[in-house]
């Protein structure tokens, strides 16, 4: 295996880490207005604070996986980074706005107890959590579907080209799986009324997710070049992805929260794997008139890849270790008691 392939895989790994981790905190953010209602003696605000506190220590570290994926793309495949970021200009701008208002909402929401202030940041957290995975789903769907690229290796479509039905379906599906993933996370991290409330909606979320995911996976066979791929991976991965989501349903019925969470995490991971399997050996598939960007014609030179590999091989396991440790430190459920909450 050469370093170009290794970095293609490493970037996939960074996106997998991102979708598994930030996937659930996006889900929690989207569920905030729906689950964060008064009940069992606790105010709506206390409910929302409880929800936010389940992801409070983690969301920022989770988000860095996305930035790491972006940074790794810049370093290992500069032409991919340049073409995609300038080509998908408006979606990425909206993604930035979503990440900004969401990130600030975590820190600012609790700093004033005026109800209007809190409602403002709740809105920011909801919208940011909704649009970020949606836009990333749209971006990835477009990558695997193919976009026009000219002979200068630049994006040649407009903004509206990106808003095709397949990509929009991809965006909605990613959002829905994140919501399910987040709901299961909440069921693992909360108690009493809030937990029961979340338990009630999970089966419904699961059904919607399965329907969307199945339609999206079928659409993928027609809208992308997946069926032309040699080898069995192109068939195994989407089927495994569907099975993982179905298995999540089984564990939801059996009230095995941890296993269900593992299965939605696996679903998200396999979606990313599927995207990268379809892409390989391209990083941006061209529908013409120019050639596709590949892991070879878009990459940095061997020396730079060698430097990057050395650094990443040492650091990435360390990052995973200390991040895992933080999940262990904050492993307890968050009780719905206003005076015990930090944020």
């Amino acid at each position: 295996m050469n370093l170009n392939i290794l970095w293609f895989i490493l970037i996939a790994v960074l996106y997998i880490g991102f979708f598994i981790l930030e996937g659930f905190d996006f889900g929690v953010g989207i569920l905030l207005p729906f689950m964060g209602k008064a009940g069992g003696g606790a105010s709506a605000d206390t409910m929302r604070r409880t929800m936010i506190n389940t992801i409070g220590p983690h969301w920022d570290g989770n988000e860095v996986w996305l930035l790491a994926a972006g940074g790794a793309t810049f370093a290992a495949f500069p032409l991919w980074y340049a073409t995609m970021f300038s080509g998908f200009y408006l979606p990425f701008f909206l993604l930035l706005v979503a990440l900004i208002i969401r990130g600030i909402a975590f820190e600012f929401r609790s700093k004033d107890d005026n109800p209007k202030w809190r409602a403002l940041w709740d809105g920011c957290m909801f919208l940011g959590s909704l649009f970020a995975p949606f836009l990333l789903g749209v971006a990835f769907s477009n990558l695997v579907r193919g976009v026009p690229i000219d002979d200068q290796m630049l994006y040649a479509g407009g903004f509206l080209y990106l808003l095709n039905p397949y990509a929009l379906l991809g965006g909605v599906t990613v959002v829905m799986v994140c919501v399910l993933h987040g709901a299961i996370f909440l069921s693992m991290k909360t108690t009493e009324v809030l937990r029961e409330r979340v338990h009630k909606i999970i089966p419904g979320l699961w059904v919607v997710s399965v329907v969307l995911a199945v339609i999206f996976l079928i659409a993928t066979f027609f809208s992308t070049g997946i069926s032309d791929k040699p080898g069995i991976l192109a068939w195994v991965v989407p089927i495994a992805c569907a099975l993982a989501l179905l298995a999540a349903g089984y564990f939801i019925r059996r009230k095995r929260e941890g296993w269900a969470f593992g299965m939605t995490a696996l679903t998200l991971a396999l979606v990313v794997v599927m995207f990268f399997v379809i892409l390989y050996p391209n990083v941006m598939i061209s529908t013409g008139p120019g050639p596709s960007l590949t892991i070879y014609n878009a990459s940095s030179a061997p020396y730079t890849l060698k430097v990057l590999t050395t650094v990443a091989v040492i650091l990435l396991p360390i990052v995973m270790a200390y991040q895992a440790w933080t999940y262990w430190v904050f492993r307890k459920r968050i009780e719905t008691k206003a005076d015990t909450l930090i944020y």
Partner: peptide
């Protein structure tokens, strides 16, 4: 990108991960 991408990527792996994760630990810990 061949030159400047590397320090920016390393900044994220080496520094930004530590900052973000341990700040969460500090606030909630």
């Amino acid at each position: 990108g061949d030159v400047i991408g590397a320090p920016l990527a390393i900044e994220i792996l080496l520094a930004f991960f530590i900052e973000s994760i341990f700040l969460g630990v500090w606030i909630f810990g």
